[in-house]
Every structure is written in C-alpha cells, then in structure tokens.
Amino acid sequence: MDKRNVLITGATSGIGEATARLLASGNFNLILCGRREDRLLKLKQELSAKTLVTTLTFDVRDKDAVKNAIQSLTGNWRNIDVLINNAGNAHGLDPIQSGSLEDWDAMMDINVKGLLYVSREVIPAMTERKAGHIINIGSIAGKEVYPNGNVYCASKFAVDALTRGIRMDLNVFGIKVTSINPGLVETEFSMVRFKGDTEKASTVYKGIDPLRGADIADIILYVLSAPKHVVLADITVFPTAQASSTLVKRS
C-alpha cells in the first residue's frame, strides 16, 4: 500500500508535533507546516530517518502565504491525502466588556479564517480525485460556552459548524471529514492564552492528570486506520478528571 501524504498545520508544538512523530512511524509521508522555521527544520531532520518529510513555513492568517506555500509543492507532494487542520490558539480570558480587540482578531483569524484558507487550497484536488480525509482539531469550547471564553468559544463553535458543512458538501465526493474536540490538553495553549504568565498557565492543569498531545495523536492514528467505509465523524475527548468544560475534579 502506498504511503499517504499528510499535511499538518501547527506542526511545531503540541498536538501537531505529537501527531507528526506518531505518523512518521506509520504508512504516511509528512508535510509539516508552521510559522517557526527552525522548529520545522529540526523536526524534519529527526523524522526523515523514518519517512519522507517536507516543510512549509507560513502563518495560516496570511491567505497569500498559505496559497503560495501549498502551491509550491511539486511532484507527488501535490497529492495531499490527509489534511489535519490543527493550527489554532486562545488569546486572553477576559469578560466580553473588557476583551482585547487584538486578541479577538487573532483568534478569529487563526482558528476560523486560517482553517478556511488552508482547506480552500487543499480540498479542490481531493474533490478532483474523489478521495481524501480532513481532520479538524476543534475543542470542547466548540460544544460548550464557559465564562470569559466568549470569542474563543465562538471561534471553536465556528470550527464545529464548518466541519459539519464541509462534511455535507464533500459527501458526494467520498471524502471523509472528522472533528476531534479535546478538553484539557497540556500544551503551549495556556502559555499563549496567558501571554507567557507561567503562574497563571500552571493553574489550568493543577491537581489533574491532563491529556497530552500524544493522546490526541493516538486518536488521529485510530481515525486514519479505520476501514474505507467507516468515518469517525465527531469525537469529544476528556482527561478522566474532566466532565465538562467547567467541571473538573482536582486533587
């Protein structure tokens, strides 16, 4: 069986990096995408011992950069079998009346528009081949709103709606579409949300055993390993200590 080409956005840390590491040992070639070229090249050097790897450096918010990067792929790399829309982040945790416009723009631009820009460049070739699999990394914040989550939750609700719409539009082409919606995952997420405040970031995971990027990578591999007639459409995953977006058992 030929290896599938997998494009992963946000591959330089967290879920994206863990997914790249896991898939490198399987039947996949990797197109690793991110803003931090040094990290991409280091990861490429490491994983190239296991599979074919290429990198694309761009910010998903920049539609021209997205277009130019993906269209720069040549040869077999142009046949993208799997798209993992993983790039996303949260900025701030403020009530709506005092939220930062810059934070709002960053979340909507990365989480929603970035996903759209990348998908728009990849999907047409999938529809032409009538084959492919799209995995969007959502969040429990796209299923439940929580206090001070306002715009972040709105961006992830948009991802959930987009995923459902994409699944409907691409059904006629036989393309699989999956949404994976994690709860608390210990990555750089909280450091970004709290703008480098390590004390605030550490309280998010205090007293629990959170999910790790590797846990979500395991789910992605399972999703990609399903038989051709099976698609895991919508998955929500929590650490055992979590029951909802706001209910967490801490020791």
Rank of each mutant, 00 (worst) to 15 (best):
T74Q: 14
K63A: 05
S179G: 07
T178W: 01
L116K: 10
G149S: 12
D234P: 12
T187S: 05
L40D: 00
L116D: 05
R250H: 10
K206R: 15
A49S: 11
L41V: 05
D209C: 09
L7Q: 04
S72K: 08
L83R: 04
L32G: 06
R120Y: 15
L47Q: 01
R36F: 02
D215K: 15
H91W: 11
K50M: 06
L83Q: 00
I96L: 15
V204N: 01
I175A: 01
K228F: 00
D103A: 14
S98T: 12
F173T: 04
Y222G: 13
L73S: 04
K195R: 14
V6W: 11
I175G: 00
D209V: 14
T54H: 05
G92Q: 07
G34D: 06
L56D: 01
L7K: 10
A241M: 11
N85A: 14
I15W: 04
K67G: 01
A106D: 10
M126I: 13
P124V: 13
T9E: 05
N68F: 04
F238M: 12
N5K: 13
N150F: 12
A233G: 11
R39N: 04
K143R: 15
R39A: 01
L211D: 12
P147M: 09
T246K: 14
G149V: 03
T127A: 15
L115Q: 15
V53H: 05
